[in-house]
Amino acid sequence: MQLVVARIGRAHGVKGEVTVEVRTDEPELRLAPGAVLATDPAATGPLTIETGRVHSGRLLLRFAGVTDRTGAEALRNTLLIADVDPEEMPEGEDEYYDHQLMDLDVVTEDGVEVGRITEISHLPSQDLFIVERPDGTEVMIPFVEEIVAEIDLEEQRAVITPPPGLIDDRAEIASSREAGEAEPEKDKAGDDA
């Protein structure tokens, strides 16, 4: 099975290094020197990682055969894809590969069906489940501990505890006025007493 592990960013310097946006929790394994990665677009690869280093908090890679800035810029926005055994599990207890989460049924703790995960969106601050509801609409659910209570791969479901308004657009808004309370009358200017 193939997993996207990084996206190539802009060139860094003049010797062929590129910045990469890491999309794996195991960059030391997937993006190590000597790794051969498929690419999207396929015509760009495969690419063999020659060197890797961290500079100012960003991972920089150099690929075999890419020796200058022009060659590095030509790789910009290329996705790096690793072959992974489908039975392989991430090292962390509460970590999952995207393919394990795809098509899971999403239900609330009290058993209400929300929908099915159709996509995982990886944002800088958190990951999002894109969930297709039974009526065909989509809802985005942050993949955070406070909302996703349980991932049960055997039962093929994700149990969530959504805050009000997350999965429905009819969030209750507390009003400071009681329903039916009349507005007080205003004094009319210019009345003679």
Rank of each mutant, 00 (worst) to 15 (best):
Asp83Met: 07
Asp168Glu: 12
Ala74His: 05
Val36Leu: 15
Asp169Ile: 00
Pro46Tyr: 02
Asp192Phe: 11
Glu138Pro: 08
Met140Gly: 11
Glu181Met: 12
Leu59Trp: 13
Gly34Phe: 11
Ser176Val: 11
Pro33Lys: 01
Gly180Ser: 12
Ile117Tyr: 02
Pro164Asp: 15
Glu93Tyr: 04
Asp83Thr: 14
Asp105Gln: 13
Ile117Ala: 01
Asp85Met: 03
Thr51Glu: 15
Asp191His: 12
Gly190Ala: 13
Pro86Gly: 03
Thr118Gly: 04
Val107Ser: 04
Leu104Thr: 02
Glu73Val: 02
Thr137Tyr: 07
Gly65Gln: 08
Pro164Met: 10
Arg157Leu: 15
Val148Leu: 05
Asp152Trp: 02
Leu59Tyr: 03
Gln126Lys: 13
Pro163Thr: 08
Glu95Asn: 05
Leu101Trp: 02
Ala82Asp: 15
Val36Ala: 10
Thr67Met: 04
Gly136Leu: 08
Glu28Leu: 15
Met102Ser: 03
Ala189Arg: 14
Ile120Phe: 02
Glu183Val: 00
Thr39Arg: 04
Gly13Val: 07
Glu28Asn: 14
Glu93Gly: 04
Val66Asp: 00
Leu166Ile: 08
Ile117Ser: 01
Glu87Ala: 15
Pro46Phe: 06
Gly34Tyr: 09
Phe129Ala: 07
Pro33Met: 03
Asp152Leu: 09
Gln126Leu: 15
Arg53Met: 03
Ile130Gly: 05
Asp187Gly: 07
Arg177Asp: 14
Glu138Ser: 12
Asp110Arg: 15
Leu75Phe: 00
Pro142Glu: 00
Glu87Asn: 05
Glu113Asn: 06
Ala11Gly: 05
Val148Arg: 09
Glu146Tyr: 09
Pro33Phe: 02
Asp83Asn: 13
Val139Cys: 09
Thr118Glu: 05
Ala35Tyr: 04
Asp105Gly: 02
Ala189Phe: 13
Gly111Ala: 09
Glu119Val: 05
Pro162Met: 06
Arg116Asn: 07
Pro184Arg: 10
Glu146Ile: 06
Arg10Pro: 04
Asp110Cys: 01
Glu150Tyr: 04
Gly190Pro: 03
Ala64His: 09
Ile160Gln: 08
Val20Tyr: 04
Glu93Phe: 10
Glu185His: 08
Leu153Ala: 12
Arg157Gly: 08
Pro163Tyr: 06
Val4Glu: 15
Ser176His: 13
Gln2Thr: 04
Asp105Cys: 06
Gly190Leu: 14
Gly111Asn: 07
Ala74Gln: 11
Thr48His: 03
Met102Thr: 04
Arg177Asn: 11
